[in-house]
Write a protein that binds this DNA or RNA. Structure first.
Length: 223
DNA sequence: TACCAGGAGAAAA
DNA sequence: TTTTCTCATGGT
């Protein structure tokens, strides 16, 4: 993928959807919680779980750790996988408190912070990069299922590439631009979940004939 | 009713 | 090392 191609898709998405103002969350900590809860789940379900946490006045690492795990799981129920996510969120909070919280972690360089996040139970590459980009405002490109789907089918990424390879291709094409990465990922998600879903309709899609959901594309490239 | 959604870890091959 | 299975709710 050339820089020109990466920027052309960005422009098409931005022209279509406009600024997204991501991440939806009032504080860096809420963003981090949302990044964990949104794993394999749609955002509306995550919002319900976060509202439950706010109702418990528990949107804070130490207060989450003070909650019994079954009560935490009950609050997280709307986001799905609630038992799994309760364990993951507690593991993250334990690490977060142990490391001295946001202020201390903000002093770490991006690679050190990324490695530390990936060592936490329940934090994989996408979740770590969501946290780095949207909570810590680091220039890290987030790769998700929509990114793979859209760019594979646009022919700009080969099938079967690993997460790190895809991330590096975007970062090399675009340069270390936090604001751009922020908007780009948000636009990909907005586009993916509205226009270019697996069973979609893209007469008005901003990617036109190159849209991953375009029937002309489907006829030859669908797996 | 079946499929999908802003994944990750554990187990099996 | 790679692939498969499991976790689960809510909307379409």
């Amino acid at each position: 993928m050339t820089p020109q191609q990466a920027r052309a898709v960005y422009r098409a998405l931005y022209d279509c959807w406009g600024p997204q103002h991501w991440w939806p969350g009032d504080t860096p900590f809420e963003i981090m919680v949302g990044a964990i809860l949104t794993q394999n789940t749609n955002w509306s379900n995550v919002e319900r779980a976060i509202a439950n946490m706010k109702a418990l006045d528990a949107l804070d690492a130490e207060r989450i750790l003070a909650l019994p795990e079954d009560r935490l799981a009950e609050a997280l129920r709307p986001s799905g996988y609630f038992n799994v996510k309760a364990r993951r969120l507690r593991a993250f909070c334990a690490w977060y408190v142990q490391e001295g919280g946001f202020e201390h972690l903000s002093g770490l360089d991006t690679e050190t912070l990324r490695k530390a996040l990936l060592a936490v139970h329940g934090i994989g590459p996408e979740t770590a990069d969501d946290i780095l980009l949207y909570a810590f405002e680091r220039p890290v490109f987030v790769v998700d299922a929509y990114t793979r789907r859209i760019f594979n089918r646009l022919g700009l990424l080969e099938e079967g590439l690993g997460y790190e390879e895809i991330r590096q291709r975007f970062e090399q094409a675009l340069g270390p631009d936090m604001a751009c990465f922020n908007e780009y990922h948000a636009l990909i998600v907005q586009h993916g979940k509205t226009t270019c879903r697996p069973r979609p309709l893209c007469e008005t899609c901003c990617l036109g004939a190159d849209c991953p959901s375009n029937p002309l594309q489907d006829s030859g490239s669908e797996s």
